[in-house]
């Protein structure tokens, strides 16, 4: 069995999932995982599928193009190889970095730059706009990064580097183990 990832982008409306899944089903693709979201009214969906070896991906791509183009949807099909056997498994712990303050263009590159220099992977990144309040002009946001931090990471140094980056941006930062969020809110 081969694994393919089908990515669909376009203006959100009823019927997108039906349209895409119909084509995938016609090609005998078995959808095993889906992640979808909408931002500014735009739909973005990732379909992780398995398919039998005889199917030609070029045919699939062409048919998807044919069926979806008229609806204003764009697609990308990519075959995903197996994880190399020699890839070293890194033991990680889940942390959450939260940055609060006035949104600015340098925010994501600055914070992600620090994380990258510590070999920390960003699993998810979300930003939430907060209601504006008097005496705080500009768009206030909370951005949170869910992270996989290698166990051997120097936590104090990571915290310090993040604090410094946030300070440079004029924002507040916290780094907390993910379990605290789950402990408080989930049964």
């Amino acid at each position: 069995m081969r694994n393919v990832l089908v990515t669909i982008l376009g203006r959100d409306r009823p019927g997108i999932i039906h349209q895409v899944s119909r084509v995938l089903a016609d090609f005998k693709l078995n959808v095993i995982e889906v992640s979808q979201t909408t931002l500014l009214g735009e739909f973005a969906g990732l379909f992780s599928c398995t398919l039998s070896s005889e199917i030609n991906l070029i045919d699939l791509t062409q048919l998807l193009d044919q069926k979806l183009e008229s609806s204003g949807l764009t697609q990308l099909v990519r075959e995903v190889g197996a994880v190399p056997e020699d890839q070293v498994e890194v033991t990680t712990e889940s942390y959450v970095v939260t940055v609060r303050g006035q949104g600015r263009p340098e925010l994501i590159p600055e914070i992600s730059g620090v994380l990258s220099s510590f070999e920390v992977n960003i699993d998810t990144l979300r930003a939430i706009s907060l209601p504006t309040v008097p005496y705080h002009p500009g768009q206030r946001i909370v951005m949170f990064f869910e992270l996989s931090v290698p166990r051997e990471t120097n936590q104090a140094a990571l915290r310090e580097a993040l604090k410094l980056a946030a300070k440079g941006l004029g924002m507040e930062m916290s780094l907390q183990h993910r379990n605290i969020f789950e402990a408080i809110h989930r049964l």
């Binding site: 939260t98 609060r100 605290i180 969020f181």
Partner: peptide, 8 residues
Amino acid sequence: DREVISTL
């Protein structure tokens, strides 16, 4: 979002 904002 709620879990993160409320904890903070």
